[in-house]
Every structure is written in C-alpha cells, then in structure tokens.
Simulated assay, not measured.
Amino acid sequence: MIVSKPKRRNVPQNLKIDSWQKLKSIFDELLSRNIQSSSDLEDWMLDNSELSAVMEEDMAWRYIKMNIDTTDDQLQKEFNFWIQEISPNVAPIAHQLNVKLVSSPFLDELDENKYRIYLRAVKNQIEIFREQNIPLFTKMQQKQQLYGSICAKMTISHDGKTLTLQQAAQKLKSTDRALREVVYNKINDRRLQDVKQLDDLFDELIELRQQIAVNAGYDNYRDYMFSAMGRFDYSPEDCTNFHNSIKKHIVPIITEIEKRRKDQLNLTSYKPWDTQV
C-alpha cells in the first residue's frame, strides 16, 4: 500500500525548502493576517501548526539521511544549511507568532478543555525565549551534530571485514566467549581513539548549555530544559526520587538476573562481554 500525504491547508504541497525566503513569505502572511473572530483564530492556529509540522519533517529527514551515510558531503551540507540558515531565522518570527496568539482578543473564546495544554506550552515558550540564545542554539546544534558524525564514523576490522560498532555489537550475542571478548575490546579500543575529541566537545556543550540557561534566567541547564520541554507535571526532585527508587528496588533485581545468567553460562567470572548472551 502506498501512503499518500494529506492535502495541506496553507503550505504549498510541493514546497522545497532551499532558501529562507520561501518560508519567510509564509511566516509573514501568518504574522500579518487579520484575525476577526475565534473561528479565524482557530484557522490561523491550524495553519501555523501545519507550517511547524512541515518544517519538523523536513529537518528530520535531513538528519536521518545525513546519519545513514556520514560520508556524503551533500547530505551534511543540506543539514548544516538548516541549522545555520533556517533555524536562526525561524526562532524570532516563531516567537512573534506565539505573542500574536496569546495577545489575541479572541483567545478567551477558545475551548479551554481543547486548547489548555497547548496554550500553556506556548506561554511557556514565550517566557523562556531570549534572542541572544539564537546563535548559541546554532552552535549547540552544530556541536551535537559533530558528536553524531564522530560516532557514526567509528568502525572496527574483524575477520577481514570493516564493521560499524552497531554491526560489531551483534557479535556480543555469540555463544563463543572468546569471540565476544575480542570484539568487545575492539569496540572499546575504537571508542578510546576519539576520547580527547569527545571530551573536549562535551566540555564545550556544557559551557554553551549553561550560558543558554543563564540567559533565560535559570541557574542551570537542567532546570532550563525542564521548562523548555514542558515538564509541568513533575519536578527535578521527582526525578531524583524516581532514580533512588530504581536504585533501591530495581537494581537488586537486575543484579540477581545477572547472577543467574553467570550461573547458566557456567562461568567463574562475569565480564562485560557476557551480558548479552
């Protein structure tokens, strides 16, 4: 069965996002549209949502294709175009659209049960938006993409074949313990080749994320991300309590399962390469 895309309301059906101007005209129309009733407002919200969905899908496909073949420079270029040209331009105008929505005189006429959660998220995005964070987000996305690129290029050589780490990991399920140990050590050795680069990258990301949080009025990136991800119904403290519960109640169960595995394998010592058999 061939799945066909639904017909779009406002965004051109065959829109190819290869320049900011193609998106800007759609954003500008939404920003300037005259809304004269709650029905108009709902139509505007649907059109705004459709545009967001189209962009999210386009961005997702660029990311997926780039990671499928990390050697393709064109796919890398297309992804970088998005984070360098599209995202920084979208951020301020998307903020303006959020403000337009919550400032509408028809907002109170909307069905509260239908839109309460959505509007809560929009108001939250307005609160945490800071224009000075836009270039920082671009840098952060570039560094996150670099991490993925470094990891995707990791391979090992085994039995005359070049294997990705994901392919190599399948051999850790082999019943041949000697093979498992060899492959496990090859995987670890390969990862350690990039340890300095990855450590430096992680340090840079910590610094960027902390600055983003401070700019938005938060003490740390964790608290900022709780707001950014719309985690309204539980707190960091709730997560800590959950982690402690896992440690207290679940870890002992896992430990017992691993002990049984060791006994079933008839091993006198239990190693990391024994855990997936």
Results as ranks from 00 to 15, higher is better:
Leu41Cys: 02
Glu42His: 02
Glu42Ala: 02
Trp44Lys: 03
Met45Ala: 07
Asp47Trp: 04
Asn48Tyr: 15
Ser49Asn: 12
Glu50Gln: 09
Leu51Ser: 06
Ser52Val: 07
Ala53Lys: 13
Ala53Val: 13
Val54Phe: 14
Met55His: 04
Met55Ala: 07
Glu56Gln: 14
Glu56Ala: 15
Glu56Gly: 11
Met59Glu: 14
Ala60Gln: 13
Ala60Ile: 04
Trp61Cys: 02
Arg62Pro: 04
Tyr63Met: 10
Ile64Lys: 09
Ile64Leu: 12
Asn67Leu: 15
Ile68Trp: 08
Ile68Met: 11
Asp69Glu: 13
Thr71Glu: 12
Asp72Pro: 06
Asp73Pro: 00
Asp73Leu: 14
Gln74Trp: 07
Leu75Met: 14
Lys77Asn: 13
Phe79Lys: 06
Phe79Thr: 05
Phe79Tyr: 15
Asn80His: 05
Asn80Trp: 00
Asn80Tyr: 04
Phe81Gln: 11
Trp82Tyr: 15
Gln84Met: 05
Glu85Asp: 13
Glu85Phe: 00
Glu85Val: 09
Glu85Leu: 00
Ile86Ala: 07
Ser87Thr: 09
Ser87Trp: 01
Ser87Met: 10
Ser87Gly: 00
Pro88Cys: 05
Val90Glu: 15
Val90Trp: 11
Val90Asp: 04
Val90Met: 15
Ala91Gln: 12
Pro92Asn: 11
Pro92Trp: 12
His95Pro: 00
Gln96His: 03
Leu97Ala: 09
Leu97Pro: 05
Leu97Ser: 07
Lys100Asp: 06
Lys100Phe: 07
Lys100Arg: 14
Val102Thr: 14
Val102Gln: 03
Ser104Glu: 05
Pro105Trp: 04
Phe106Ile: 08
Asp108Val: 08
Asp108Leu: 12
Glu109Lys: 06
Leu110Val: 08
Asp111Ala: 07
Asp111Cys: 06
Asp111Glu: 13
Glu112Met: 04
Glu112Pro: 00
Glu112Trp: 02
Glu112Cys: 01
Asn113Arg: 11
Lys114Glu: 13
Lys114Arg: 12
Tyr115Phe: 15
Arg116Ile: 10
Arg116Asp: 14
Arg116Trp: 06
Arg116Thr: 09
Tyr118Asp: 01
Tyr118Pro: 01
Leu119Thr: 04
Leu119Ser: 04
Leu119Val: 07
Arg120Met: 13
Arg120Asp: 11
Arg120Tyr: 03
Arg120His: 05
Val122Cys: 01
Val122Asn: 01
Lys123Leu: 03
Asn124Glu: 12
Ile126Phe: 10
Ile126Thr: 07
Ile126Ala: 09
Ile126Asp: 05
Glu127Ser: 10
Glu127Trp: 00
Ile128Ser: 02
Ile128Phe: 04
Phe129Lys: 12
Phe129Pro: 12
Glu131Pro: 02
Ile134Cys: 02
Ile134Tyr: 03
Ile134Ser: 02
Ile134Leu: 01
Ile134Ala: 02
Ile134Lys: 02
Ile134Gly: 03
Ile134Glu: 03
Pro135Cys: 05
Leu136Lys: 15
Lys139Pro: 01
Lys139Asn: 05
Met140Asp: 13
Gln141Tyr: 12
Gln141Pro: 00
Gln142Arg: 09
Gln142Thr: 03
Gln142Ile: 05
Lys143His: 07
Gln145Ile: 12
Gln145Tyr: 15
Gln145Arg: 14
Leu146Cys: 00
Leu146Gln: 13
Gly148Trp: 07
Gly148Tyr: 09
Ser149Lys: 11
Ser149Tyr: 09
Ser149Ala: 09
Ile150Arg: 02
Ile150Phe: 04
Ile150Met: 04
Lys153Ala: 10
Lys153Ser: 14
Met154Ala: 12
Met154Val: 06
Met154Ile: 10
Thr155Phe: 03
His158Trp: 15
